[in-house]
């Protein structure tokens, strides 16, 4: 049974429960991540994302559940699990007195790479992550983005087959976030299995093969971004007619499947495939009938819509959790 599970899934979780005091953080979580794919665990603050990652990386013990990482039980075989994972947490956990290079070599040695191999890998990662110019400066002089890149590099030094990225871009400026995304996409191409947690829908949408929406300690939906979006409806064109007197005419002319309207607001929604041709067709009709409009937009369902649909509330990107990585004394 165990071999069967691990043949397919790099991460396998069944019935995971975790309670802190009387707060139930995880209430029977089920999840599996296929080898060589990335799963994004998406959810608001307090949904249980970090707790899940901490259990998978052996920092916390589960109350209940069957949890395997690369075929090893996280409780019974914690040490083997540690040999197979790289963890990048929410905080850029680098030694601030040591230089970037020293941090990397130290981490290589702690993964029991040989000294020469640690030095070689450090050099390689400094180059790949664009840290070389700052390699020999203490990391307390690094920018937030560079620290995060080093943090990620530290977790990759021993080529772990499974990588946990716990909110790797929280608190980064947009440019650093894009850089980080580039790095993560490359990790994917190289065949690593990645579990990413994020509260940014855009991030999950852009990077992940599969998205699991976590809320109140349970997975409430799982699928590809497109599958999830499909659950909340298709693309549509949203038109606001200028004059109420034109409204009925417009409605008749545009009549087709999937049309919705609201006369009071002078709104019409037409389902579409989002192609230029479809948009032009609608504009042509309005033009030939000389119907003026106040507004028109093409609306694609976003993961925000998905989250709203599933939970009845919006995902809040709580910026107050942003750490101040530069506030060193």
């Amino acid at each position: 049974m165990k071999n069967d599970i691990t043949e397919k899934s790099a991460i396998h979780i069944r019935g995971l429960k975790k309670t802190f005091g009387n707060v139930k953080v995880l209430e029977g979580l089920n999840l599996s991540v296929q080898r060589g794919t990335m799963l994004a665990l998406l959810g608001p603050n307090g949904a249980g994302k970090t707790t899940t990652v901490r259990i998978l990386s052996t920092l916390l013990t589960p109350d209940e559940g069957e949890i395997y990482v690369n075929g090893f039980d996280v409780v019974q075989e914690a040490e083997q699990v540690r040999h197979n994972i790289g963890l990048t947490g929410q905080f850029a956990a680098v030694d601030e007195f040591l230089t970037g290079r020293e941090n990397l070599v130290m981490m290589g040695r702690l993964y029991h790479l040989s000294k020469a191999e640690s030095v070689r890998r450090a050099e390689e990662l400094l180059e790949q992550f664009d840290i070389t110019p700052a390699a020999d400066r203490p990391t307390k002089t690094y920018s937030g983005g560079m620290r995060r890149r080093l943090d990620l590099a530290l977790s990759l030094i021993a080529h772990p087959p499974i990588i946990f990225l716990d909110e790797p871009t929280t608190g980064l400026d947009p440019r650093s976030r894009l850089t980080m995304w580039g790095i993560i996409e490359n990790l994917m191409k190289e065949g690593a299995t990645i579990l990413l947690t994020t509260q940014y829908l855009e991030e999950a949408d852009k990077l992940a093969d599969q998205i699991a929406v976590l809320d109140h300690g349970k997975i409430i939906a799982i699928g590809t971004a497109d599958e999830l979006k499909a659950t909340v409806g298709s693309e549509h064109i949203h038109i606001v007619i200028e004059k109420i007197s034109d409204f009925d005419k417009a409605l008749t002319m545009l009549a087709r499947d999937g049309l919705q309207s609201n006369k009071e607001e002078r709104e019409i929604r037409v389902a579409t495939d989002g192609s230029v041709r479809a948009v032009k067709e609608i504009l042509d009709i309005l033009y030939s009938e000389q119907i003026e409009i106040d507004a028109m937009s093409v609306h694609k369902p976003t993961l925000d819509d998905v989250f709203l649909e599933l939970t009845g509330r919006e995902i809040e990107g709580d910026e107050s959790t942003t750490e101040s990585t530069s506030s060193s004394k």
């Binding site: 043949e7 075929g71 090893f72 040999h83 790949q128 990759l156 021993a158 580039g182 190289e190």
Partner: peptide, 23 residues
């Protein structure tokens, strides 16, 4: 920036026994 990673491929048959040069 240049981001070029060179992680080892992880074929299924090699799970758990990847040569990661760990001593």
């Amino acid at each position: 920036m240049k981001v070029q990673l060179n992680l080892l491929q992880v074929p299924n048959s090699m799970k758990n026994t990847i040569n990661r040069k760990i001593d």
